[in-house]
Amino acid sequence: MKKFKFSEEFNRKVAPTVARYPRAEAALIPLMQEVQRELGHFPDEAAQALAGLLGVSYARVKGVLTFYTMFRREPGGKYLLQVCRNLSCHLAGSVKLLEYLKGRLGIEEGGTTHDGVFTLITAECLGACGTAPVMMVNDDYHESLTVEKLDKLISDLRAAAKAHK
């Protein structure tokens, strides 16, 4: 396995994160989130390195990594689209939105567009049922969606991705 090197920014955050808990191992998930925030995903090599850093087993880190759905083990698109598929969103037409996105982006659930801009997945209840249907784009909620709104949102995100290139 490749040796993983934490960033300087990450290293600066270790002590204050660990200090929030009486046991260092409780900092595991927050530090995994920090790695993912920097890299966009959490590579397996980082699991080994983090296990060493916190003095826990590799199996423990791998177990956590595979249990929680927000950890992404493979690199994905610049924008992670998560369409809520639970009941309130389902009743409000989330299936149509998902079908629309698959068609427009030319990918299936779990896929990433060729240009690396979008990854499309479904999510379980995002806790915003009053404004269903709902989709997350990275950390942001987009609520009360319609196909028209979604169409514009995708165009805007594409343009933003291009501008940042």
Binding site: N86, L87, S88, E124, C125, G127, A128, C129, G130
Partner: peptide, 11 residues
Amino acid sequence: DEGEPGTFKDR
């Protein structure tokens, strides 16, 4: 950890 489908009060 609000996640019970249909619940969005804590947010």
